[in-house]
Design a protein around this nucleic acid. Sequence first.
DNA 1: AAGCCAACCAACCGCCCCGGG
DNA 2: ACCCGGGGCGGTTGGTTGGCT
Length: 272
Amino acid sequence: MGRSPCCEKAHMNKGAWTKEEDQLLVDYIRKHGEGCWRSLPRAAGLQRCGKSCRLRWMNYLRPDLKRGNFAEEEDELIIKLHSLFGNKWSLIAGRLPGRTDNEIKNYWNTHIKRKLLSRGIDPNTHRSINGSTTPPPKTTKSSLQNDEPVRFEISGPDQQRIVKPEPMVLDREDANNKCTSSGTTSEKDIQTDDDWVLNLELSVGPATTKSYRYELTRKANPDLAESTRRWSFELLGAQAEVCLCCRIGFHNESCRNCRTSDVTTTWESKIL
DNA sequence: AAGCCAACCAACCGCCCCGGG
DNA sequence: ACCCGGGGCGGTTGGTTGGCT
């Protein structure tokens, strides 16, 4: 039995796309839009697998793609996002307008890995290879080990998940680093035992328009034994219309494209 | 000029997720 | 609740290019 192949491979072209094939695909999508990839090749007169058409369009022919070298800012952003998401290239690509997951993946493997290694940083763990260049995480009373990831899922009041991707995984060191640089709460608050604050920027709905900036606060719950490894979370959010530039961190004070509403909501979240 | 090698990147493969029936 | 198919994703491959000897 098994699964039927996505297409009749015997009659399909493989390998590099010709200009004629590109033109057929572009013309068809301009006229009809992106639809069912499985039936598209036949309709467009292409001897290609639907998946192949999708890939070619997504990675190469889409008009909104930015071609050319990566800027230094993009490098650093990729490194930061990789430290948060790992090899979730599509998530990373979602925050780099005009870049594709494939492009970022290739760039990571050919450039950034080496760049990090030359800095003495392990590209997989984002930690110092010899353990001397990055500061050690703060000592806390937490029962979490320093290298143990904190997994949490953020849900809205109606229990609808507002984080569509995998539950975010942050290591403790990363979270602590964010605490100290957030500036949204007092040093005193940050330093106390298990409390920390984490600034999140989440996207909901069409990735290009709306985003939500949240401040996630973890507070030690004195009612729970440490061994249960549970904390209460408060998620204070502000809904915002944020332009792409600002979303990827190149915020300009004079930006008129961003509008922030003063809606602040308390959300619940839980440790998984 | 030819051969070799490393780097780059487009494309493929196979698995997984999710929505619809 | 289960199955199926389409779409999406991450890992990998292999062809191309450019630099060096």
